[in-house]
Each structure stands twice: as C-alpha cells, then as structure tokens.
C-alpha cells in the first residue's frame, strides 16, 4: 500500500474518458460558432496605399453577420419604440391571462357543474385553436360586430353604443387575443398549483373559522404560487416572443419595427439579429426576476433556501481563496 509523506493513503479519482471526449467535441463546436460569428468576408473591393513598387493592396472585408449594422440599429428610436410596444403587449396580455386564468382555475375546481363546465369549455376552445387565427379574428371582429353596445341582454335597450373600429385598435385587438389565449394556458397552470396544496392545509384553515375565500387567499394561493411561478415565468418569456405575431395585424412592435426598416433598406439579416438580440436581453432580465420570485414564494418549503447567484459567487470565490495555502500571498496579489 502506497502512502503519502504524512502517512495517509492517497485517493486516485476515477478517470472519465467518455466525459473528456464529450468535452473536446463541445469545445470544437463552440470554437466553430465563435469563429463563424466573428468571421469577415471579402467584399470584392480593394483598398490600396502607396504608389509604384511600394503600392500595397488589401481586400476589403466586412463582418459576415454585419455586426456594425446590427448595433447601429440597436438603439434607434424606431427599434426602441417597437421594443416598448412589445413590452407593453406582453405585460397587458400576461396580466389579462393571469387574472382570468386564476378565475378560470377556481371556477374549474368549483363543486358547481355549470361553473366548472364553463371553465373547461373556455380552455377547450382557446387552447384548441391557433393563436394566430385568434389574433386575426379579433383584428377583424368589426365584420361580425360593427357596433358594441352596453345594455340589457336580449332586449333592444342600450345605454351606450360605439363603433367597434373606433375603440378597437390593432394593439388592443392583439392585447385581447393574446390575453384570452394565455388565460386558457394559465388556468391549467393555476389549477395544477391549487391542486398541489395539501388538503390538510384547507382543513386547518377551515377549522380556525376561515371562509372559503379567506382560505384561498391566505393559505392556498401563497402555497400554490411555489408551483405556479416557474411555468408562469416560462409563459411570460413565451409571450414576449409570441407577441411578435401581432406584427401580422399591423402592430409595430419589435419585429414589426425591424421588418419596417429592412423593407426599406434590404438589410434583412442584420435587423432580424437586432430584434433577436433585444429579445435575448429581455428574456435574460425576466429569467433573473423569475429566480428571485421563486425564492420569495419558496419560503418555508425548504429548510434552507438555495443561494442567490451573488451568494454562490461569493462562496465560490471564498473556496478558491481557501485552496491557496498562503492566503496572504493571494490577498496581497489582489490588492496590488
């Protein structure tokens, strides 16, 4: 038995050959991607300097992905305005979806057959037809209902009548279409969350005299949130991108703004990249928000909550520092 100098037995870790092959393959792919993203192509033109024998010529090159154009448009007012509309559309559609979805979920779980049946039918219809079709239907709703009235159902009594097209702009049609569609999905997510809360919690709340509404609000909902938040985060991110469909009905959101610009200057790829980069930026911000929201609603579910990325980074740093036997040396180096 071989031992180290201090007498302890040396541990030889297992070698993961397959893992190393995988890592190598992944690194090659990453290198290829980085290479092509940063590659330049010759334009066919040349620039020359000097005269006579000392004349030197270079082929003019440009970014394959036209990064210069991508970033030139990145902060133009048209793109930023489109981004704002995208955010607005996403926020409103999700707000409608979440509120209506919650109501539908509670209805679906009601012991009353009419309420649960209505909720089921809603979900069946709005989940069963393409969102693009729904968007087009709401955009053209004036064909079916040229006027909207507020009055008593099944009578001619109307207190207020307006022309549909004057109050229903494309942006509003998109908000309604995306919001109602989202509600169908959110209702299923909310229902799963409500069902995930243990029956005993409801009994305990009931036993201290809470009525159904209080039980739902103070006991069931906060605990259901832990299950509801992660897929809802997904839905928000998904909605951010689905909202680009609104460009079809003439809403100038992020993608609409980009297509408007490239239909004038034919810089199709750069502008699609500009829009994509903005979608990525917003998605990243939303993911960070989701993490902290999940942490907040996870209270009490775990004995110790997971560390935030900042905490983890600090701990990792502390671990690296601790690995160096001469701490003062490293600290000194950092200071210098």
């Amino acid at each position: 038995m071989s031992t180290d100098g201090d007498g302890s037995i040396k541990v030889v870790p297992v070698r993961h050959v397959g893992r190393w092959v995988g890592v190598a393959a992944a690194l090659v792919v990453v290198a290829m991607i980085v290479h092509t993203l940063l590659s330049r192509l010759p334009t066919g033109q040349k620039t020359c300097r000097g005269v006579g024998a000392s004349r030197v010529c270079h082929a003019v090159t440009e970014w394959r992905f036209s990064w210069d154009i991508v970033f030139r448009y990145f902060t133009t007012s048209e793109i930023l305005h489109g981004l704002l509309v995208t955010l607005e559309l996403t926020a409103i559609a999700m707000a409608v979806g979440i509120v209506l979805g919650m109501i539908l979920a509670v209805m679906r779980l009601s012991p009353n057959r009419v309420l649960s049946g209505s909720a089921w039918t809603y979900t069946w219809f709005f989940r069963g037809t393409p969102v693009l079709v729904q968007l087009l239907v709401w955009f053209n709703i004036a064909i079916l209902y040229p006027r909207i009235s507020l009055g008593i159902p099944f009578t001619a009594v109307a207190f207020l009548t307006v022309h549909t097209n004057t109050v229903f702009t494309p942006l509003e049609a998109a908000c309604v279409a995306l919001g109602l569609n989202e509600a169908a999905y959110m209702s299923e997510i909310a229902r799963a969350g409500l069902l995930s809360v243990d029956e005993g919690q409801v009994e305990a709340a009931t036993s201290i005299g809470m009525v159904r509404r209080q039980t739902l609000r103070y006991v069931v909902m906060p605990q259901a949130m832990r299950v509801i938040i992660p897929p809802t985060g997904n839905e928000v991110i998904s909605m951010l991108k689905t909202s680009s469909l609104a460009s079809v009905i003439g809403v100038i959101e992020l993608l609409g703004a980009a297509t408007n610009i490239y239909s004038a200057n034919y810089e199709i790829m750069p502008l699609l990249l500009t829009a994509s980069l903005w979608y990525l930026v917003v998605t990243t911000v939303l993911s960070i928000g989701q993490f902290y929201l999940e942490r907040h609603f996870g209270r009490g579910a775990l004995r110790t909550p997971p560390p935030t990325p900042l905490q983890r980074m600090r701990r990792d740093l502390a671990g690296i520092v601790a690995k160096f036997p001469n701490r003062r040396g490293l600290a000194g180096a950092v200071e210098r």
């Binding site: 243990d198 005993g200 919690q201 009994e203 305990a204 709340a205 009931t206 036993s207 201290i208 005299g209 809470m210 009525v211 159904r212 006991v219 906060p222 605990q223 832990r226 609603f297 209270r299 009490g300 579910a301």
Partner: peptide
C-alpha cells in the same frame, strides 16, 4: 350559511394527526 358555520367553527379548536401547520408562514 357558510359564514355562520365558520363563525361557530372558529370557537372549536382542532388539532390534526399530521399537524397541518401553514407551511408558508412562520
């Protein structure tokens, strides 16, 4: 009515086999 039943129930304490403490509250 539910409200009346709940008001009566509030004055009857109940302790469950599986505690049923509200997990999200301190």
């Amino acid at each position: 009515s539910d409200r009346q039943i709940c008001a009566e129930r509030a004055r009857i304490g109940m302790v469950f086999q599986r505690f049923n403490l509200f997990q999200h509250l301190t």
